[in-house]
Amino acid sequence: MEPYKKTVDAWLRTDLEAPREQRHTVRRITARIEEEFGGAIPYPTVRDFVAATRKEIAAQAGAPVEAFVTRHNALGADAEVDFGDVYVDLAGQRTRCYLFAFRLAYSGKAVHRISRSCGQCGQQAFFDGHVHALTTLSGVPAGQVRYDNLTPAVKQVVFHSRSREENPRWTAFHAYYGFTPFYCEPGLRGAHEEGDVEGQVGYFHRNYLTPVPQVDSPDESTAD
């Protein structure tokens, strides 16, 4: 890394003023070194240098340093839930539907259900997805089920806090089934907190909904 340290340091300092989504990743830095200097540096070497340098730059700039704790999932304990858009050719007409995904954190086993209404618009679809998932899995997670701040569950987000004002029907629903909801931080700060199920929605798109499914009736579009 010696010939490139000052250059990479400058890139990382520029990142302080850049949008979060457009800051250098280790992979992008490795690629730029090869593109601009013709040097092939092993990824772990770049990773270790960037990790140490970012901490130094953040400390010098007085920027807050985020810390992450490795999450260890226990068998049958935790799960994640998400909604995503899908399209179905319904009776020859392309129709926007919604994919409910429920993923167990330890095993990665996931249950999916497509409905005509989304979690933010139809609480019935939100509840139906849970009932279907818990029935399919033959049990209820013993730990926490992680959620984005979906409207069917959350009436109001208490910012700078994990507290939420829940929809009363949702409170009664999860109390009946005996599981504990965990709400992610709003926006990008909470994106990593249920990243596995978000990736699962994309996986389901690519592997089971490509090409676009063709169905003749709404009953066929509600699928596992």
Rank of each mutant, 00 (worst) to 15 (best):
Y4H: 12
K5V: 02
V8L: 02
D9G: 07
D9T: 15
R13G: 02
D15N: 03
E17Y: 05
E17F: 09
A18C: 04
P19D: 06
R20S: 05
Q22L: 10
R28Q: 08
I29N: 01
T30L: 08
R32L: 14
I33T: 03
E34P: 07
E36G: 10
F37S: 04
F37W: 15
F37N: 03
P42T: 01
T45K: 15
D48K: 03
D48V: 10
V50Q: 09
V50W: 11
V50S: 07
A52L: 11
A52W: 03
K55D: 10
E56P: 04
A58P: 02
A63Q: 08
A67W: 10
V69D: 13
A74W: 15
L75D: 15
G76Q: 07
A77R: 14
D78L: 10
D78G: 10
A79D: 05
F83D: 14
D85H: 11
Y87R: 11
L90C: 02
T95G: 04
T95P: 06
Y98H: 12
F100C: 04
A105K: 06
Y106D: 15
A110D: 02
V111F: 08
H112A: 03
R113P: 00
R113A: 01
R113D: 00
S115D: 10
S117F: 13
G122W: 01
G122T: 12
A125Q: 08
F126Q: 06
D128A: 15
V131M: 07
V131P: 01
T136K: 14
T136D: 10
L137I: 09
S138T: 15
A142H: 13
R146S: 10
D148H: 06
N149C: 07
L150V: 01
T151G: 10
P152A: 01
P152Y: 02
P152H: 03
A153G: 04
V157I: 13
F159G: 09
H160C: 11
R162D: 15
E165M: 14
E166G: 09
P168Q: 12
T171M: 10
T171K: 11
A172H: 09
H174T: 02
A175F: 08
Y176R: 04
G178R: 09
P181T: 07
P181Q: 01
Y183F: 15
E185V: 00
P186I: 12
L188G: 06
L188A: 05
G190H: 02
E193R: 11
D196I: 13
D196N: 12
V197Y: 01
G199F: 08
G199E: 03
Y203M: 03
Y203R: 04
H205N: 05
H205W: 01
L209S: 00
Q214Y: 04
Q214G: 00
E220K: 04
A223G: 07
